[in-house]
Computed example of a mutant assay.
Amino acid sequence: MTDSTTRSYPLFSEQNSAEAVNARIGPNVAPRTAQVAAAVVRHLHAAVKEIEPTHEEWLAAIRFLTETGQKCTDWRQEFILLSDVLGVSMLVDAINHRRPGNATENTILGPFFVDGVPTLPAGANICLDGKGEPLVVSGTVSDTEGRPVAGATIDVWQTNDDGYYDVQQKGVQPEGNLRGKFESGAQGEFWFRTVRPRDYPIPDDGPVGKLLATLGRHPNRAAHIHFMIRAPGYETVITHIFSPDCPYLAEDTVFGVKESLIGEFEKVDDAREGKIYGYEGPFWKTARSFVLERSEN
């Protein structure tokens, strides 16, 4: 017998397992928290019923998640890698960035962004280790009406020609190698010098790498340069430029490639043009126009 202040819960069974768990969510829980928790329980229980794991298999899954957490450090987030390789990062990003047709498409941030890098003058060379094929990147920042956005902040970062970000090789690469921050000019213009991006494997020495191998998948990302474009009054854009001839465009391990983000790279072997950009030998050029959507906030 129960009084009016006591809640009655259904008893647990295989058939009503999710309902039994969700019935215990308190009446004063925030609605969004209750919605998310209930959905996770429903889908998790449905997956378990479909898979019918043995006790040993379920313990293996728990060990996998434990090892994933233990692999995390200040600069390496193994759970982000797990989210990335399962396509969840890209799905969450797509849901949260449904933009007008001409606005620049987003892709994933990745785990190696570093905030607070110094602002550099237009034309600065962010390659500090001298490795790789020289590349000039130029472009503009505008709004969806085609008007230039002056003073936009353009953060850029990429791996070096060995396939590592500077934070992965502290004491090996120069600090801040292949990172920079630039501001767009009065007509929204910007440019800088770097090196042509290359494909590289995500860190695969941990549980996520083992998972990929178990699934018969490679750990390679398509060659790209990261960009984050911010301007007051506009939605922040986190995106890439992908190299058009990279063999991993169709099978980027984190599903980050979108057709609109594949760039055009031009090989230049003209001494007069090279002198303009400070190069004595051949180099590459690519241009990209970033289109920002007005913020509703």
Score class of each variant (00 low, 15 high):
R221N: 14
R221C: 11
A223W: 11
A223D: 14
H224T: 11
I225S: 08
I225P: 03
H226I: 02
H226L: 08
H226E: 04
F227V: 06
M228C: 15
M228F: 04
I229T: 03
I229D: 00
I229Q: 01
R230M: 08
A231F: 00
P232E: 03
P232F: 02
G233W: 03
G233H: 02
Y234R: 00
E235M: 03
E235Q: 06
E235C: 13
E235H: 12
V237M: 05
I238Y: 04
T239C: 03
T239E: 00
T239Y: 00
T239K: 00
I241G: 01
I241Y: 07
I241M: 09
F242K: 01
F242M: 07
F242W: 07
S243C: 14
S243N: 13
S243W: 10
D245F: 05
D245P: 04
D245S: 07
D245R: 10
D245W: 03
C246W: 15
P247A: 09
P247W: 06
L249D: 14
L249Y: 12
A250S: 15
A250P: 10
E251H: 14
E251Y: 04
T253F: 09
V254I: 12
V254W: 04
V254K: 13
F255Y: 14
G256C: 05
V257R: 02
V257W: 07
K258I: 01
E259H: 14
S260G: 09
S260K: 10
I262A: 06
